[in-house]
């Protein structure tokens, strides 16, 4: 697979397409509106017939465009991978066209991206949350969402009534625990800030 020729062909068809810096596989940025057409062209004219992954990306509230949709494609004939990314133009209410009409396998991936990032996929046949429960008010993989969670009501009102419980932030005990990197012996996950735990409150 000739990445330069592929890029030239797509740029001819979609003037907004641009090469995307990538460490592992050829990458391509396309405008969100062109995403289904570009993926269709890649499938029909370039042999990228398998949707390997689809996910959302949040670059944080300070960056614009904040949200993007990233698609990994694989050609089952030529065994090459390709990454296609589309930035959502609206930072407050991110939206991207659905790929379910091109690759039906995108269905649950898009539901996950919607659940975790709040990206709405226009044209999706059944855009519901897939991991968190229906009615959960947050999108947990957004940058401002704490890993420990936010206090909300339990999904079932009757269970909440009989137990008197809510969803509470998880005790982090100085965590989250991250690996400092390096060799296996040194890479054991540790808390970034060990000055606080359940006995010594967070300063």
């Amino acid at each position: 697979m000739d990445a330069a020729a592929l890029l030239a062909d797509l740029q001819a068809a979609f003037p907004g397409a641009a090469p995307r810096p990538s460490a592992d596989m050829p990458g391509l940025d396309v405008p969100a509106a062109d995403l289904p057409a570009a993926v269709t062209r890649l499938r029909d004219a370039h042999g990228f017939d398998l949707l390997a992954d689809l996910c959302g990306v949040d670059r944080g509230p300070a960056v614009s465009p904040r949200f993007s949709v990233v698609v990994h494609l694989l050609g089952s004939g030529h065994h090459a991978y390709l990454r296609v990314a589309a930035a959502c133009p609206d930072d407050a209410a991110p939206e991207a066209p659905s790929l379910t009409a091109v690759h039906p396998g995108a269905d649950w991936h898009e539901r996950e991206a919607f659940d975790m990032f709040g990206i709405r996929f226009a044209g999706h046949p059944d855009l519901r949350r897939i991991l968190m429960w229906d009615g959960y008010p947050h999108h947990p993989l957004r940058k401002e969402f704490p890993l420990a969670g936010m206090p909300v009501d339990l999904p079932a009102a009757d269970v909440a009534a009989v137990t008197g419980r809510r969803v509470e932030p998880a005790p982090m005990m100085g965590g989250p625990f991250v690996s400092p990197g390096g060799t296996m012996a040194k890479a054991e996950p540790v808390a970034r800030d060990e000055s606080w735990n359940e006995e010594n409150p967070k300063p």
Partner: peptide, 17 residues
């Protein structure tokens, strides 16, 4: 106790319910 899953999605111990 929720085990290693100190996260927004996990009940921190089934004795809560």
């Amino acid at each position: 106790s929720g085990g290693m899953y100190r996260s927004y999605a996990t009940l921190q111990g089934v004795d809560r319910i």
